[in-house]
Design a protein around this nucleic acid. Sequence first.
DNA 1: GTGAAAGCGCTAACAA
DNA 2: TTGTTAGCGCTTTCAC
Lengths: 359, 359
Amino acid sequence: MNDPMNKNMIRIKDIAKLSGVSVGTVDRVIHKRGKVSEKARKKVEKVLEEIDYTPNLLAKTLGSSKVFTIALLIPHPGQDPYWKLSLTGLDIAQKEWRPYHMELQPYFFELENAKSYTAAAEKLLKASPDAVVSAPIFQNEAVDFFKQLDQLGIPYIHFNTMISEVSPLSFIGQDSYQSGKLGASLLHLASKHREGKVTILHIRESVQHSVHFREKERGFRDFFRSIRPSQTVSAVIIEGNDMDTFEEKLIIAIKKNDIKGLFIPTSSGAKLTAGVLEKNGLGHISIVGYDLLKENIALLKNDKIAFLIHQNPSRQLFRGIYHLANHLLFKKKAPSKELFPLEVITAENVDSYLEAVLH
Amino acid sequence: MNDPMNKNMIRIKDIAKLSGVSVGTVDRVIHKRGKVSEKARKKVEKVLEEIDYTPNLLAKTLGSSKVFTIALLIPHPGQDPYWKLSLTGLDIAQKEWRPYHMELQPYFFELENAKSYTAAAEKLLKASPDAVVSAPIFQNEAVDFFKQLDQLGIPYIHFNTMISEVSPLSFIGQDSYQSGKLGASLLHLASKHREGKVTILHIRESVQHSVHFREKERGFRDFFRSIRPSQTVSAVIIEGNDMDTFEEKLIIAIKKNDIKGLFIPTSSGAKLTAGVLEKNGLGHISIVGYDLLKENIALLKNDKIAFLIHQNPSRQLFRGIYHLANHLLFKKKAPSKELFPLEVITAENVDSYLEAVLH
DNA sequence: GTGAAAGCGCTAACAA
DNA sequence: TTGTTAGCGCTTTCAC
């Protein structure tokens, strides 16, 4: 009545009056539901273009019985500490969106097991959710899955990894190239006072992530090229799951290349490597790694890791859900890309990151 | 369960039926408003004890004409680039909370002018807002003001600066001591390969901030004490507003102390200092400063500033509003402290921070 | 195709 | 001191 807030708020009723139709018709036009004559639609759309209408979420949710389901297709948290981190984002998003009739449904698959991915994807499709947020780990299988979503008209968002061939509503993650550059600059800073060479160390990286890691490597190389064009930077690749041969291969590579600093693009790689170095009296070699895994944090504090770059998987997931919820509820368009800040973690600021729940 | 989706949710209507009164009476009992007979109150309270009633907040907000006002008491953005940054948080919060009947009302005061603070505070009190978020710059005046708010039962939240003697709902900001430590470690990293000493440089800091800056200094000193107990770290204090004498004093201090690195706790200090150093051929001296001021960013990219620590004032304000809105609307209790991560900004990751709107 | 009208759960004004 | 009722803005059903 005398609510000052409502004075400027445009309601469906107002649009109806302005376009000379009923609220029912306006609703049908806005949501493209039911039958509307070309003439009526034009009138309403004209008004909509001229004014700035924002639906009232409260009224919308209150008046509706519809419950939206957002499905998450992500690696099993029990398998990998990095992915476990992302679950915090799920929990918080769950709490935040529940009152607005949003239900979140995770579907887990096993890393390094493409079959389980396909199985989870199928199960997800059976439930026919309203939207999907997904970490597209398995290139080939993922593409198939997203093509199906396209067919069904189910919107989806990618996070963490970017893949080509499909077009999600948006991608949430970091600029891998710049991340590599940052890693290089930090490694340089940590090791410049010592003699030797730096290298990027690829440890058992799934082929599926190739673009991601290739970009980091490119950034890494470009940084060093820019500061000293003459000297080339090597890349060491270690494959296989056997810890003994890993150690052996690593030590050989280090000795051969006279390594003083390692840039390790995978979350778990840093802790594996730091352990081997320590055991072999190579603790002076600088490491720049990724993410706030428990072990990485301990190593950072003990000065075994010089820097970590934070990818904030929990917030990536959280923001993916946020954009989809807004899409479903408000028809707000998500940005095609949401790039996160490249956060530098040191022994001195790591605690401040742990305290901040979901900054 | 607090689950509005659940169709078996208990409504006021149900309580009314169970206790044999009308919804109006139930509403009066629940909110202790209007007149209710002892008998009716007892009946309703009995039912309320037996069942688990959670009001539907969507309906509550929608049905209510009450508009909450949150007042902001902050430095004038035109006066200081740091405070100007915080306004982004206000804008975004405004948009986000408007639909929930939250109005944000800023009251600006001038830095270095205690009178204007008092004047703004008085004006604010006259408007009798429902809650206040404030940067308590002027210790003495601020304490008076908050005591009054206490008296009036108006909840308030502090951000940026912590003060004692009063107890806000919560404090939003960073750990100043740890921030000083971080600054020290970064300065060490940037300058350890060169000869000379490091110092903390206080430039025209308002006395009002004293705790804030004293803590940073303490952290700064503690870091260097821990890595080399023998050597003491100096502190240089420059006061006054005259740029010429600033330059002179700074150069003298640098020469006298054989300075190789400067830690500058104020946002604007870094850019002032960098200019003077450059002009006097002292560009090799490392600087660690604060915040993403336009000039600081440029200097960072040109390698005139080694690191910046991001205090994220816009998000601090945003979160303060967030907690108050939740308090008013949902009676949710805010955390007594929300400490932000200490974000390290380098030439390589600064752009990623600029792209992220309000991360 | 369209408009009118009955909710959603709560608040607040108004009778009684 | 009570109960009744008209909104809040949107959805959804039901006549026409």
